[in-house]
């Protein structure tokens, strides 16, 4: 199975001490190691205002991770663990690789088109002009 890239964001309670968050992170790391996944990056966004109330909190500590894995079960397992954690009030996992693949494809197309355009205009081959004339 090909590799998949996931986003994992979780929100911890605003008053959580740093050790607790690190404990959660190490737990994620542990399950990743167990199920064959790799944490690409980890970002601490810090305390942010929530757009709506979550578990009676208006703020939360955001932690963002990117995980690369071959097994979808890893994500299911991670979600199960996050759900159990008392510190985590909300989490989200998003599969990213399909979107990124699409992005890459579109970028390639755009570059192709950009490369084709200048070539067509300066030499103005007779075949191209004939084609356009026939088309019009």
């Amino acid at each position: 199975m090909e590799e998949r890239l996931y986003d994992l964001i979780f929100i911890a309670r605003p008053a959580t001490p740093e050790e607790e968050i690190n404990k959660v992170l190490s737990g994620i790391e542990h399950t990743c190691a167990e199920k064959g996944g790799k944490i690409e990056k980890t970002e601490h966004w810090g305390t942010r205002k929530l757009a709506y109330r979550v578990a009676k909190h208006r703020e939360g500590i955001y932690v963002y991770q990117q995980i690369r894995t071959n097994h979808g079960e890893l994500i299911a397992e991670l979600e199960r663990r996050l759900r159990v954690q008392d510190v985590v009030i909300k989490y989200l996992t998003v599969r990213l690789d399909e979107d990124l693949k699409r992005q890459k494809k579109l970028m390639g197309k755009r570059e192709q088109r950009a490369a084709r355009r200048p070539r067509r205009t300066p030499p103005a081959p007779p075949s191209a002009t004939e084609q356009t004339a026939a088309a019009s």
């Binding site: 964001i9 929100i11 205002k49 929530l50 757009a51 709506y52 109330r53 979550v54 208006r58 939360g60 909300k90 989490y91 989200l92 998003v94």
Partner: peptide
Amino acid sequence: KRARNIALMPFAGSAAGTQAPR
């Protein structure tokens, strides 16, 4: 919709809306 899910964007009511009841 994804942003709403993780409380980066509101489902209903603006940031000002959440500040008012605060």
